[in-house]
Amino acid sequence: MIETIRKLAEAYGPSGREEDVHRIVLEELKNHIDGYKFDRVGNLIVWKDGKSGKKVMLDAHSDEIGLVVTNIDKNGFLRVETVGGVPPHPYVGQRVKFPQCTGIVYVEGETSQDMKKNFSNLSFDVMYVDIGASSYEEAQKVAPIGTFGVYDSRFMQNGDFLTSKAMDDRVGCAVVIEVLKRLNSPNNTVYCSFSTQEEIGLMGARVAGYDIMPEACIAIDVTASSDTPKAFKRHAMVLKKGPAIKVKDRASISDRKIVDKLIELAEESGIPYQMEVLTMGGTNAAAFQATASGIASATVSIPTRYVHTPSETVHLDDIKNCVNLLIEYVQKGV
């Protein structure tokens, strides 16, 4: 499973450019699903037929945050804007990977005062990307305006701590893949959506939900973790304590019946879990709840350190327990 996570997390897949990720998902799922399709906004939807006549859905978004080239100056330096909620700080001196080249991101400033000011009010407005081009034309050849980039970051393992860019939400994709691999003759028909364009506003999920209209849907995504020095105080989530059953974030309140069922199943099977109330953020569950005539939806999260940085860090135990809990749910939950 670690190798699957590595492959997925290292893949290039900013919002709207999820094709590589979907290719990996399909390779992994070969012989483990009964069918798949791509819908009109690029969502990959796979399924495994059950006998009960009921549909249950799992969702993990396939996109990641990124940068997009908006301008190129006459000396070949790029200007970029964000794709999703990208903090500027991790990008100082960091590399950004475009499909055809890799760039270095840094901060402009003509005086040391300028520099100080730009560093303390850091934004992509005062940052540029150097791809080793010397002219507009040269840059436009390899990174034309409208090219999307992602953190240039490799997967790393410290014991059972796994670190990479894009754990948000490739770890969710890996969880869903593992559930499908381990699910033999499911009770309910299981649909899984590897949804596009989550990071810029839950775009793909609205369409996927409308299309499938399952009895219940669970989004699997990352959440914040408060187990680092001087971490955010009001959050309970930590690594190694199990998957987090979300009650609420800023975009959705989880369906209470699903939450209660998840707790019941975890207790019954002795799967460690933790409860989550996130004071920020949102997941595709919000989109599922509000599409078509509404889908009962909840989120199960993998607690993650350093979300939206090149070093999003998760723990293997949480991932494994998340898989166990979801298998219980898709079999017995609806």
């Binding site: 009109r40 369409v207 409308y210």
Partner: peptide
């Protein structure tokens, strides 16, 4: 020309995100 900033939205976002999604 390519539009070179990404701020602001248009009805395209709605058309893509409702019903079965319109490219």
């Amino acid at each position: 020309q390519a539009k070179r900033r990404t701020a602001g939205g248009t009805d395209a976002a709605r058309l893509a995100g409702t019903w079965r999604g319109v490219p």
